[in-house]
Amino acid sequence: MAYADRHDDHDAASCPLTLLFGHEVFRRAYFQRAAEETSDSERIAELIPDLFLVREMEVPDAVGDRLTACRDLGRLRAWVVRALDATDSADVFMLEQPA
Rank of each mutant, 00 (worst) to 15 (best):
D5N: 15
R6A: 05
R6V: 03
R6D: 08
D8S: 15
D8P: 12
H10D: 09
D11S: 05
A12F: 07
A12V: 01
A12H: 02
S14C: 05
C15G: 06
C15F: 07
L17Y: 13
L17E: 13
T18Y: 11
T18F: 08
L20N: 05
L20V: 13
L20A: 13
L20W: 12
G22D: 12
G22Y: 12
G22C: 10
H23T: 14
H23I: 14
E24K: 00
E24L: 03
V25L: 05
R27T: 10
R28E: 15
R28P: 13
R28D: 13
Y30I: 09
Y30P: 11
Q32D: 13
Q32E: 15
Q32A: 09
R33G: 14
R33M: 12
R33Y: 12
A34L: 02
A35P: 15
E36N: 13
E36M: 09
E36T: 15
E37I: 05
E37L: 12
T38S: 14
T38M: 03
T38Y: 06
S39Q: 14
S39P: 08
S39K: 12
D40T: 08
S41V: 10
E42Q: 12
E42I: 11
E42K: 12
A45F: 11
L47M: 03
I48V: 15
I48D: 12
P49H: 03
L51F: 05
L51A: 00
F52P: 04
F52H: 06
L53H: 06
L53R: 09
V54A: 01
V54M: 00
R55Y: 00
E58M: 02
V59K: 02
V59N: 01
V59R: 02
P60I: 03
P60C: 04
D61T: 13
A62V: 11
A62F: 08
A62Y: 07
